[in-house]
Design a protein around this nucleic acid. Structure first.
Lengths: 334, 334
DNA sequence: CTGTGGTTGTGAATCGTTTAAATTCGCGTG
DNA sequence: CACGCGAATTTAAACGATTCACAACCACAG
């Protein structure tokens, strides 16, 4: 038999209201009554029914995340799992629940989820990843009145609360590193340019390279190892000038490394714009920018909780990435 | 302004009851009334409030998963993400929601979550991974009356609905493979023996090896690359007889590979009891048993939905694993 | 004209919690 | 002793759906 506020009230000879006040630390009950209520509640193991509470408070204490990539990609990139782990750790402490939805990458599959969540009142707020250029989601959420925090950069303002990655700084670290190693021509193998952070990265590299007098070339690719490898082979076959290659994630870096190995071009430097176990274990080990997804997950979640609480979100900057120099940071011998 | 059943009823000049019957396809309303209701409902974009419905039906249409490993490990193992992707794909179709909780690996952190979910009536059922020997969770869930499906094997019966992995078959595939390659002494670097599937695997290998007249040795390890590497070095330093090594996951296989490479013992075979991108990309590529986590996630979720529906769960066997032979499948030259 | 049966529909209770408003009570004060 | 006040407590109305029991209506057989 489920123990409810009604039950407690009956056993204590009190009204539901008093019990509720007592249990929620609200004023309106005497200290001795409060004690009695709390004692019985813990003895009987009372917990508020989440749905009753949600119905009454119109708040679910749950926040939602929709992941939009294809399952195969999700499996191979540790990034998301770490990010989620960070998010979860904060939610756990805040007594909130994580709703996770994974939809395919076809357009529009995600927006219906937000609409449903909003109409069903299932989530109090959502977290937005992988913004695309002219992303319709911030606008939609604004219209729905569903609070959110987006992961973005200063370069493409979202118009709503945004957790900011300092891509400009990351780009100048990368470019600076290659400049130090004597490289002049660099290739940036980007992810799909439809992603806002990919076109932002591209622009940031472009600007930083300009300042450092390096010559960047950009080639769009998807996030798979296969495509990265094939593209690298092609480019090298066509007399690529670049002596250093940036890839937008770790998996692509592996593709590049494999192509370079096969073609005997170990003199070309590689840097992955995303660190992971993968970069540490391959031979040669791959220089990478560590982005601390778990930490970013934690921070952005705190920000979302602030937004939900109506507090002005204090923390809007991602903690800075760090360059982890490994074996693929080879000098350019001209 | 939120659109509710009450609102619809008022606009249509009907009672809430009729509207509810109409919307839920229940008998009790005429066809023309039903049409009128449905038309207005779609026009106004009505969705049932999840909490009101949950309160009334005492069912939340959400299932919960508690992951118990440490975040770092979760990030490095693609296994879980794929599994979750499989689970989610079925839930999405079934109009159910996934609640995800990640707790540290300290004992007891997970059980309070189940208790809370049950008492708060937040989840209709849960999925159990990584059973340990004498796991208290099935018993707890039984007592709480929270339906579940456990991922287990026939070797350690859980006592409740279980999604069965055929470890005996996997073990004989592995042993058979090594026997074919002429190996006589094999080492199984297991994960923590506290996990039921780890001790099951050990016993299964032991039995299969006995049948095939191979001599197995078992050494317990954790799931990290570092420990696997160190352990391998130690064992080889102490004149290990084994010419073939089984590791319980892909990350450990990498550790072993790295130790063997460093010690110049490329003549020792390696097989990872878990496939992933990692095994495909390292040099040498690592022979692995592909376990299709996504597919298992889908199947076990269907099973859980059956349990929730009161149907006798039809599908209780995991789809069989496949041996992917790669470069570490070296012959034993005596 | 009455009784039976089948459709449509409504009223009201219920799920468990929150909360505004009303009530009771004790007690010090003028 | 009446009065007023604040604290403690209760009443009752939400929140938004589901569902049981019953009412109204019509048709039709006896």
């Amino acid at each position: 038999m489920r123990v409810t506020i009604n039950g407690l009230a009956a056993q204590l000879g009190l009204s539901k209201a008093s019990v509720s006040y007592a249990l929620n630390g609200q004023p309106g009950v005497s200290d001795v009554t409060r004690e009695r209520v709390l004692a019985l509640a813990t003895e009987l193991g009372w917990y508020p029914s989440s749905s009753a509470r949600a119905l009454s408070r119109s708040r679910t204490d749950a926040i939602g995340i929709v992941l939009k990539r294809d399952p195969e990609l999700l499996g191979s990139e540790p990034y998301y799992m770490s990010l989620l782990a960070g998010v979860e750790s904060v939610l756990l402490q805040a007594d909130q629940t994580l709703l996770l939805r994974m939809v395919g990458s076809e357009k529009g599959r995600d927006t219906v989820v937000y609409q449903k969540w909003s109409a069903e009142r299932r989530a109090d707020g959502v977290m937005l990843f992988d913004l695309i250029v002219d992303d319709e989601r911030p606008g939609l959420l604004e219209r729905l009145g569903l609070p959110y925090v987006a992961h973005g950069s200063r370069m493409t303002p979202v118009g709503g609360p945004t957790f900011i990655y300092d891509l400009e700084h990351e780009a100048s670290m990368i470019v600076g590193h290659f400049a130090e190693l004597g490289h002049l021509d660099i290739l940036h193998l980007t992810g799909p340019q439809i992603f806002a952070h990919e076109s932002d990265r591209r622009r940031a590299i472009s600007a930083a390279a300009g300042r450092a007098a390096l010559r960047p070339v950009f080639v769009e690719c998807d996030y798979t190892m296969e495509r990265a490898e094939a593209t690298t082979r092609e480019l090298l076959g066509a007399d690529l000038a670049a002596t250093a290659i940036i890839t937008s994630n770790d998996v692509m870096a592996l593709g590049v490394a494999s192509a370079l190995r096969a073609l005997g071009r170990a003199n070309i430097a590689i840097l992955s714009w995303d660190d992971s176990l993968l970069c540490r274990i391959v031979t040669p080990t791959i220089t990478a920018l560590a982005r601390f997804p778990e930490e970013q997950g934690r921070r952005s979640t705190r920000m979302l909780l602030d937004v939900l609480a109506g507090v002005d979100p204090s923390e809007i900057l991602a903690s800075p990435s760090e360059l982890i120099v490994r074996e693929t940071s080879v000098r350019n011998e001209k």
